[in-house]
Design a protein around this nucleic acid. Structure first.
Lengths: 402, 402
DNA sequence: ACTATTTCGTCATGGCGGTTTACAAATTAG
DNA sequence: CTAATTTGTAAACCGCCATGACGAAATAGT
């Protein structure tokens, strides 16, 4: 079952797959899983009324899910109302789990999330990967993966797939890193370097960060822009609850939106791209600091101390971000902008200028800008949860594998 | 059945509707209609292999569609291959039809498209609507609608819905014109002014133009940007074969993407928006011409005559468009950009500067830019076809109404 | 010509999936 | 302690598609 778990996408009129009774069953199994998962604990009757099937039908679906170990029965609910109390169902804390990994510029991280959404294990290794070739890095990552898998297997969990977040552009095949400038990786097929027995998905860290925000954020809407700056500036475009990836998978390159069209030249070939004003290197230079080390922490520290150069640099970055975002908001009309990744930590000094700029350039009420609660954990969590979601989206595909 | 025909949208995991056998049947009916419609004429066996059902199942589906008048049997196919020839099926040229209307700044137009996609009637009325209040304009439009409906009813067609294209922002309810600056309409509920018996959809003309391109364009991909300039500059964002509308329905406002952030002030509150450089008024001013009359024709004529001021003005507009599009392409990564509406007619003089700018600012191969074949007919055709698509998307909803 | 082969459309049968209906179990309200 | 309410399950039913077989209508080969 290395089949395309992720392809639950419905394409406009008439999906590619025939509409058969088995497909119906599979979709209804998924609906039950989602209902229980969203609520934490639910009786059969509650599931039935929530997804619009009859209690009898839900009973058979639940039976099947319990048999395959994806749901478990917690026993009778506390009866608050009149009538026979229902029997609480919950997503199983054992069985398939999501394996998420992050290849950062300065670290590697792996975590396991169970179907309930709980983080069950996490390993991290500090140390720069800048300029290292993919093979040793992925070999090291594989070591971490094997360790963590062995660890959680003792708790009855097994990995239903592996999702890897990388700081770069990823092709739509979900395996190939087309370009990761800060790692100096180009056209690298991670599928060839990772254990073949794990169903693999590779994606941009901004995208996984955006998905984490969508799935784990407190009041996150279904349409928003998740802006994430690490070294480059990327954005995840979440439209109607799913990621906009673009034809080649390169959507969301906010960093290369022109801000001052006659500005300084950029590596992308353009001039005056946002990255020239709000990218990490540009901000450090504008603040009179040297790159290297924990750069974001350094910036935040100096800004908190009131360093005027740093404050000014961040204000200017915020203004540039505001200009680029004005364009994006006019094009996409999202419900919200969420600042994630390194931007979350610098938000206090970026936000005022950013919001001023948005307000100046918008006719109606400006789009609200919020700061991610997840911060730099977003991509890792998003990756692991994407595997979990794939299981919830098609429980039948996973059943009987454990 | 004024029910939301358009809501065939699938929301992420687990659609809102329960997955029942009747739903399955409805979706399969739609699949048959789409298959036949896409091919023009198809036998039952060909439909079956195309949509993945068995011949027996398709037979019953086709029977039902023939009984309700949506399909018709053309008789035996010309046998080119061995074996019994199939019986050709075609979408009916009678029965439900799509009614499309366009409220332009300088004209009104209405047309009827049958399920086969043929334009069966068309009425147009020239005359400016600038500054007229909505009531008399829509009253006049209603008159045209009634005339054209009476006309096509004699051919056995009846309207399955009415779609209206307007030059302005439309709310997501698909009825309310939030702002149409060139008509000076604000927060106008067209549903209250049009015959209630017609299922109504109102949308931006750029959006309908984009849909027309998607459905009728020659080699149009599923992901593209349709840029349409009439007075303002709007874009339709087609992602994975469907329109990106935005939370409020305001997506695609390319005209207010900042191009020179310190440029002249714009009505939107911003500065240096694309519209300041490539909007009709700006181009006319830059070319030293007075607004009024057939302005696009005037520009095209002068440009063709080699008028240097006009040529320069169009070059500069092309450059500005290129800058704004660079931002859009970085965000959306579409497969193509299509110039439609008035831009199509001016393309010869806009394209060189536009493409130069895109090439300069893009690292990889630049996104191809093409010119719409439909030109200014796009919005009207898109509107009418959107009704037709709604019928094809759910034939069961319409069956038995005729 | 005449037969074998291929393909098409249809019919009868069957399996599968959700609904309907009925009922026992478990709780609260009075 | 009874009536009312809600839950979960079982049995009968209906609808939908798959399967397999068949006649019909064409081509290919002898």
């Amino acid at each position: 079952m290395t089949a395309p778990l992720h392809e639950a996408r419905a394409n406009g009129p008439g999906r590619a797959l025939p509409d058969t009774q088995q497909g119906m069953r599979r979709r209804n199994l998924a609906r039950v899983m989602h209902a229980v998962s969203a609520e934490g604990s639910l009786s059969r009757a509650a599931v039935a009324s929530r997804i619009g099937l009859t209690r009898a039908a839900v009973s058979t679906l639940v039976d099947e899910l319990i048999r395959t170990g994806l749901l478990e029965e917690l026993g009778p609910e506390r009866p608050g109302r009149v009538g026979r109390p229902g029997s609480a169902l919950a997503v199983s804390g054992r069985g398939p789990a999501g394996l998420g990994a992050e290849v950062g510029v300065d670290h590697l991280a792996v975590c396991v999330v169970d179907l309930r959404g709980e983080v069950r294990a996490r390993i991290e290794r500090q140390g720069t990967n800048r300029g290292r070739s993919p093979e040793p890095v992925i070999e090291e990552l594989t070591g971490l993966v094997r360790r963590i898998v062995a660890e959680v297997e003792r708790e009855g969990l097994w990995p239903a797939g592996l999702a890897v977040a990388v700081p770069g552009l990823v092709a739509r095949d979900g395996r190939t890193v087309v370009a990761a400038p800060n790692l100096d990786w180009h056209d690298t097929d991670l599928g060839a370097l990772l254990p073949a027995e794990l169903a693999l998905t590779v994606d941009n860290e901004a995208n996984f960060g955006g998905l984490a925000e969508l799935w784990l954020g407190e009041n996150t809407p279904h349409d928003f822009l998740h802006v994430s700056a690490e070294i480059g500036i990327g954005a995840a475009l979440v439209v109607d609850g799913s990621l906009l990836r673009g034809t080649r998978g390169f959507a969301g390159e906010l960093g290369h939106v022109p801000v001052h069209p006659d500005g300084p030249e950029c590596v992308c070939g353009g001039r005056g791209c946002l990255e020239q004003y709000a990218g990490e290197e540009a901000v450090l230079r504008a603040a009179g600091l040297e790159p290297g080390g924990d750069r974001v922490g350094l910036l935040a520290g100096r800004a908190a101390d009131g360093d005027p150069d740093v404050r000014r640099a961040l204000r200017e970055a915020g203004t540039a971000l505001g200009i680029a975002l004005t364009g994006a908001l006019n094009l996409l009309d999202p419900e919200e902008v969420v600042l994630g990744g390194a931007l979350a930590g610098l938000a206090p000094w970026l936000l005022p200028a950013l919001e001023t700029e948005l307000a100046r350039r918008t006719a109606g009420p400006p789009c609200p800008v919020s700061v991610s609660r997840l911060g730099s954990e977003g991509p890792l969590l998003g990756a692991a949860h994407s595997v979990v979601r794939a299981v919830l989206d098609d429980p039948a595909a996973v059943a009987g594998r454990g």
